[in-house]
């Protein structure tokens, strides 16, 4: 049951993020700049910066994981022989 709850939380979070991001990048562009709505969203630069940083960190993590695993694996093979 805890799994279902966690799964639901993950899906909800992704819906929220998707909606917010869509509003931010697409909808807000067509909204009158003087309206108060714009205060809920940071400067549009961050709409590119944040995903870019996350992507770099993500790729770095994957590469580091593969590298560390392969190094540990060949180190233990050397110990065995």
């Amino acid at each position: 049951m805890a799994d279902k709850a966690l799964g639901l939380a993950m899906v909800s979070a992704s819906v929220v993020i998707f909606t917010y991001y869509t509003l931010w990048v697409i909808v807000l562009h067509f909204v009158d700049p003087s309206l108060q709505v714009h205060e809920f969203f940071p400067d549009r630069v961050w709409a590119i910066a944040i995903p870019a940083v996350l992507l770099v960190l993500g790729v770095a993590f994957v590469v580091a994981f593969i590298a560390v695993t392969m190094i540990r694996s060949s180190a233990s093979k050397k110990k065995q022989s």
Binding site: F65, I66, V68, T69
Partner: peptide
């Protein structure tokens, strides 16, 4: 294990 994941990839 981690090695199985890497082998899979």
């Amino acid at each position: 294990g981690a090695m199985e994941i890497v082998s899979y990839l």
